[in-house]
Design a protein around this nucleic acid. Structure first.
Lengths: 147, 147
DNA sequence: ATAAAGTCTACTAATACAATAGACTAAGTA
DNA sequence: TACTTAGTCTATTGTATTAGTAGACTTTAT
């Protein structure tokens, strides 16, 4: 049931980009900065951010004043999207996946006990990750830091 | 977030063993029978059942009339136990695992946004798998077959 | 021009996953 | 007692995935 480093690093990077910039605007961070903040190997992070960019979740600017920034508002990007892009389906087994269903070959899927339970698990995971935005995470972390 | 074949096969085998025997007693099934029912490679299943036996969830009898049977009543064996034995911790990231915690190296775990969300995910998974017994699964499948 | 930053593709090392193989041990039965 | 059947145990193998590296290329600001 685990999240890969790839997925973890991607989420951490996106969360950093979701924190409002000091001046209040949209944060623009360079790969090297994020790498520093989150202790992620630069070259690995590069790949991850590029994948997220090609998936439409990030935008970037090249050259000297370049960097990455969110392609949408932080409250419009859900963790579930990020995880699916980097780690694939949320479902524990494919025959229960909404986004990437595949038959599992059991005689009758509709009366398969394992499938029912794993369907519940997939829904429980998706309920959290598809309803939690980067803004939610950022706010929650800030709240914890206050108290 | 996926379950390995090992975990899936183990769960399927245990569910088979949880179905009451035709005569009403505790089911005793041989490796070859389970392998047949669930289309699992015999030698692979052998390993899995042995692991489950060594973990105390199964008992076995050798020789001609041999086979495997549950070590406890089907309503005392929770899916979470089985998954942990075969696939390791339920938690997506280690720093949020109850049974196999490890620090993740972020500056302050108590205010880490990712950790909070993943903690919720691990709890959602555990709430289901640690509260669903083999008996529950068996009953649920039987109910679906009726309707 | 040149330096700084992202882009893109290929490669590699390590690990985990899925299975296979085979020799060994216990239990029943002819 | 010998034979057959079924579980036990350990080692090995092939493949896929994961995690990370490397390097050449492109864009942008100064």
């Amino acid at each position: 049931m685990r999240l890969s480093k790839r997925g973890e690093y991607g989420l951490r990077a996106m969360i950093q980009l979701a924190h409002p910039a000091p001046e209040g605007g949209l944060a623009v961070l360079q790969i090297a900065q994020i790498s520093e903040l989150e202790k992620i190997p630069v070259k690995f992070l590069e790949q991850i951010l590029l994948t997220l960019k090609n998936a439409g979740l990030l935008q970037s600017k090249r050259g000297v004043t370049g960097g990455y920034y969110l392609a949408k508002a932080a409250d419009e990007i859900m963790l579930g999207q990020i995880v699916r892009i980097l780690d694939g389906p949320l479902a524990p087994i494919r025959c229960v996946s909404q986004m990437a269903y595949e038959p599992c070959g059991c005689p009758d899927e509709s009366s398969c006990g394992l499938r029912m339970v794993m369907g519940d698990v997939r829904n429980a995971i998706a309920d959290i990750l598809d309803n939690t935005s980067l803004a939610d995470v950022s706010a929650r972390a800030r709240a914890a830091r206050q108290s």
